[in-house]
């Protein structure tokens, strides 16, 4: 079996000897609720989402072989907070109390979700979406909706900036992505950027939260 994949080189960096190389794993997609493929790099320091460029009627020649599956897999870094957010919201609904993270991020259907807790900086960014308590040496977390909306709003702002820099067509006109025009056209407003960015961010959060974010 083989696949064609484009990923940052850092995915396969092996600092020293380690058996914990990059791992493809299925996790709970926070938007659809279904299983989707993700990648953890060495020692699960970073999370990546796996997307595929997929058009009909393609296959690959790879050296002296033919591969029926004509997808091109693309691996891009993803903020693990999006993944953890689902479990925080769930815990808030079910328990409504402060809990240690390793008791929040548990999933019988996707046991490798615990690898999310190894991601670098996750713990230092949790405060964007949670209230924290420290008892002894242990930290306890509880979902905070207002903080989360504020954090997501920042994500939307960052996305708007990226859309403008990337000259992505966010206007109402349908236009081929390979068509290079002089600009967005006079009919594109700031609201269009925000709506588009909200839509993109919504791909990574539950539907209810997306609706709240839209109102926010």
């Amino acid at each position: 079996d083989q696949w064609v994949l484009v990923a940052p080189e850092s995915v396969t960096d092996l600092p020293g000897k380690t058996e914990n190389g990059p791992v493809f794993t299925r996790l709970h997609n926070p938007c659809t609720g279904e299983a989707a493929l993700y990648l953890f790099d060495t020692n699960a320091q970073q999370l990546f989402e796996v997307k595929a460029f997929h058009e009909d009627y393609h296959s690959w020649f790879i050296d002296q072989t033919v591969q029926h599956d004509g997808r091109l897999l693309l691996v891009t870094p993803m903020d693990p907070l999006f993944m953890v957010l689902y479990y925080l919201i769930k815990a808030e609904k079910e328990q409504g109390k402060f809990q240690p993270l390793d008791q929040i991020v548990i999933d019988a259907d996707f046991p490798s979700c615990s690898m999310l807790l190894q991601c670098a900086k996750l713990k230092s960014f949790l405060h964007h979406v949670t209230d924290e308590k420290e008892i002894g040496n242990k930290k306890f977390y509880k979902y905070n909706k207002e903080k989360t909306l504020k954090w997501l709003n920042k994500k939307v702002d960052q996305t708007v900036r990226a859309l403008k820099i990337g000259n992505v067509n966010v206007g109402p006109r349908v236009q081929s992505t390979t068509f290079i025009s002089g600009g967005q056209g006079s009919d594109v407003k700031e609201e269009d950027y925000i709506r588009y960015a909200h839509g993109l961010i919504s791909e990574y959060i539950p539907k209810e939260l997306s609706e709240d974010l839209a109102k926010y």
């Binding site: 079996d1 696949w3 493809f24 299925r26 997609n29 659809t32 279904e34 299983a35 989707a36 493929l37 796996v50 997307k51 595929a52 460029f53 997929h54 058009e55 997808r71 897999l73 693309l74 992505v168 992505t177 588009y196 839509g199 993109l200 919504s202 791909e203």
Partner: peptide, 17 residues
């Protein structure tokens, strides 16, 4: 249907290899 950013570019979520 995923966001237009993805389907305009022929990009989809992968569930299986």
């Amino acid at each position: 249907q995923s966001h237009r950013f993805f389907h305009e570019r022929g990009l989809e979520t992968v569930a299986d290899l």
